[in-house]
Simulated assay, not measured.
Amino acid sequence: MTQQVRIMRGWEWARPVRPVRREVLGATPEVEEGRPPLLFVPGFGHGAWAFAEHWLGHAAGRGFPAYAVSLRGHGGSGPAPDATLRAYAHDVVQVAAGLPRQAVLVGHGAGALVVAHALARYPARAAVLVAPVLGGWGTALTALRRNPLGTLPALAGGRLRLSRSQLFSRELPEADARRHAARLGRAARRAQWQLLLGREPEPAVGEPPVLVLGSPDDRVVPAAALTRAARRYGSAPLLFPGMGHDLMLDARWREPVDAILDWLEKDPDPGRG
């Protein structure tokens, strides 16, 4: 006998998330092969542009419909100075629900935490956490130790700042690094506090397969954190030495996205979809 578990979220129903204009960029394959769409979710300060630079077109070239959403207050989405992680997860769920087929959610940095929260509300085909920043006191202490000048303002409600050396490897041309850094914005204060001090996400709906990947040389997310994140989902992290935190913009951007697409082509959970 199958037992159904219903999760009651009365507080959330009483206080629905405020609507906002959402920027969604996309690239589709020349030939439709029925593959699951990918929805890329950027981290704090980044917009959909961070995936439109390389990964969207590359994924479409390999037969996967690919989309990227700018979380509210980021990129071309509407302003949201008081946004919360719940509101960010709501944006992801709403966009994913509007795609033609069950989607694969791909979150980068703090966007991986947003995806983890969205997985409790959306039955994803699979999920990928890229250089995941999954929050909590450990994240706060690591950020303070590795980037005190950039983290302390965020604790006081200011902008969380990351340096060029944290985001990119030395292989990336300086002109490209400056161009990308110039486009960085900021997350809402409440969302930043929740990232550093917040609760863990609820269990994912349907237990989708989850791939965790990153770089052991990431100066934002230590290798031990990648291992912990992967263990949470019953796997080991896939590592790309020599790359910075922003794998999708770094000089060797093809390696991680090809690894993601290779994993999906093997159909990590053939019983879904």
Rank of each mutant, 00 (worst) to 15 (best):
P100I: 13
P65W: 07
R178L: 13
G198P: 00
A59G: 10
V221G: 00
W263A: 13
A103K: 14
P222C: 06
G63M: 12
P237A: 11
V69H: 03
R21I: 09
G73V: 09
L38C: 08
A131E: 11
R121Y: 08
R232G: 13
E53R: 14
S215I: 15
P268I: 08
G10R: 14
L226K: 08
F168Q: 02
G206F: 02
V20A: 15
Q94Y: 03
E53F: 12
P79L: 10
H58F: 13
L85I: 12
E174Y: 03
A223V: 12
L144M: 11
Q192H: 00
V220G: 04
D262K: 03
L25A: 07
G138H: 07
E202Q: 07
D267R: 11
A154K: 10
A188N: 05
M1I: 01
A204H: 01
A131W: 10
A116L: 05
D258M: 03
S165P: 00
W137E: 13
L25H: 07
H54I: 09
E265I: 05
G244C: 08
L149E: 15
A188L: 02
L249D: 02
R21C: 05
V128A: 05
G109N: 08
L184H: 03
G61W: 05
R186N: 13
P209A: 06
G107Q: 01
K266R: 15
L172R: 13
A182N: 09
Q3D: 15
L129P: 00
T139Y: 13
R186Y: 02
L99Y: 10
T84E: 12
T227G: 08
L172E: 10
W137H: 07
A50G: 11
E265Y: 10
L211N: 00
V20E: 07
P203W: 10
A68I: 04
V31H: 14
E171D: 13
P241R: 12
R179F: 12
A204F: 06
L160R: 13
P16K: 05
A14R: 13
R228D: 15
A131R: 02
